[in-house]
Structures are given as structure tokens and as C-alpha cells.
Amino acid sequence: MTTYTLPKDKLPEFLSALSDYEIWAPVKKGPATLFDRLDDLKDVDLDLENQPVISKKAIFPQNEPLFSYDRKGTVTETDLNAVKNTIVFGIRPCDARSFTLLDPVFEGDVPDPYYRARRSKTALLGIACNDPFVNCFCTSIGGSPFGREGLDLLFIDCGDLFTLEVITETGKEITGKASSLLSPATAESSEQIAQAATDKIKRHIDLTGLPEKLASLFEHPVWKEFASKCIGCGICTYSCPTCYCFDMQDETTLKQGRRVRIWDSCMFPEYTLHASGHNPRATRTERFRNRIYHKFKFNMDNFHSYSCVGCGRCISLCPVNIDLIDYLSRVKETE
């Protein structure tokens, strides 16, 4: 693996060298750290102390116009050729890995052209998590704070400089554009920092046998108990890097309109409500249970992976302390 170093103060120059790309990065918006398209390179704020929300929107935007139409009914397809080559800088390894879990959903029997257009043109430049957050449990679910899965380049914070690991051809191409800023790294490996980071992860769960366990618990009263404190907002699903459910709506102004797809949440009653008024998941219990089953059973049935990367955001952001790790542990103990 090729490895370089980049002095930290050269980061703006590094990003300027990539001006052919549209760049997404964590930016400070008020007190919050959010992933957003950069208008000004100065806005990048890696903010290693806060877990940024939400990186999936760089490839799976919250609103995606599918096509537009006019009063005569003429349909104009969104020009996907206009999607620019994009770099998502400062993405965490768990979030990068989430795209590898979204890929089979959006490819599948019928590939989704919108997802594919962005995904194929987006390079993921990750920042290793030297200091995982309190609810991080990536190591319990196949990831790690220094995970390379899904990434093209991995930045490792080594004090005054970043170590850059080139993971893919795209990563190589990108480092090529900024080669004057990079020095070949000495043999010193990042393994020690990686191990230290992994050791800092305090939350763990053994998921062995979980899908089989879930298969036997669908009708168990434990779901009602779990869901009883849920207030039914969508914070867990919207902040989740692997949640992908969407709604499709026609939005029309006087002269024209567009059909747009928008993130949806399985936690909202409207999500499954039939026009007849019948709702197959009418209560919070059924919706909550479906969310857990989708992630830890149905996704396993369909794609042989959990739909979770262990980022812990649903736990950290839940207003009522619905703690996925805690609940899954209890599921495992439930008879």
C-alpha cells in the first residue's frame, strides 16, 4: 500500500489541488457539524470531537428530483451527466462502509440510475477515528475505527501531519493531483494508533446468532415494551447512514412540476398507510419492530449483511434513550 504524509497546515492547499471536483466535507453550521457541499474550502472543519451528521446525502440526497414535467405533460429527465466528479472528504470509516451496504439495494435487479450516477463519480476520502465516540460499536459489526472498506483514501491524524493511505486507483489518481504537497511516508505504520483507537471503543455486543434469534421472536411482547417509550420521530432513521427508505412526491408550481424522491422514515405512520385507511404497521410497536428486523434480519436474508455500521448515532440522538446496543443485547437474552 502506498502511504504519504501531508502536513496538516497544507490541507487547504491539498483540497485546492482538487478543484476539478465538487467537494463535500464536515462544516460547522451554528453549533452543529454537518456534511455539506463546500462553497469555500476554508469552511472545512474536521471537528474530530463531534460526530458529523449526515454523510449519506452526498450520494443519496434528501431530495432528488427524478424528472420535471410541464403543463403539456412533457417529461424532462434529470440530466445525470451533469453530476460532477465529487469528493467526500473527512468521512468516517463507518459512514464510508455504509455505502457498500447501500450498493446492493440500489443496484439489485433494477439498478437505480440516480444513486449509480453519484456513487460512480464520488471518491470517499476518510478520516480515521483516533478517538471514537461514546456509542461507537463499529468493531462489533464488522467495522473498525481505521476501516478501509468503501474508502479510496484514508487520512490518519498523526499530530502535526496526516498520513494518507492510498486504497484504490481513484485514491491514487487523487493523490497524483496533489503530489507536490505529499511526501512518501516512512515505514512507521499506523497500527499502533489504530489499536489504541480500537481499545477506546467501550461499547460492544456479540451479534452471533441474532438473525436466528429474531426469527423466533417476532410475536414476542418484548417489542411492545421496547417501543413504549418511542416518541415516533425520525431522528434515528434520518441520521442513520444505512437507512435508505424514500417517498416519491409530485411538486407542482403554476407552470411546471417535478417528481422528487425524499428520504422517508419507517417510524412515521404515514409511511405504510393505505389509501383505504388500513395500516399494516399501525402502531409504534410494529414500526419499531420492523426497523430492527429490517436492519438485523431482513437485510441479512436479502443481502447477507446487517444494515448497520455501528456508528451509534441513533443511540446518541434519540431523545428518549432508545439504545440499540442495549435492546439488541436484551433481544439475545429473551426466550
Partner: peptide, 14 residues
């Protein structure tokens, strides 16, 4: 302020 709202409705539901 509102440009960054993701409409998760946590405000409304809490």
C-alpha cells in the same frame, strides 16, 4: 437556521 433542518420531527414529537 432553517436551511439545515432535516425534518426528522424530533422537535414536534418531543
Amino acid at each position: 437556521q432553517f436551511s439545515r433542518c432535516i425534518r426528522c420531527y424530533a422537535c414536534r414529537n418531543s
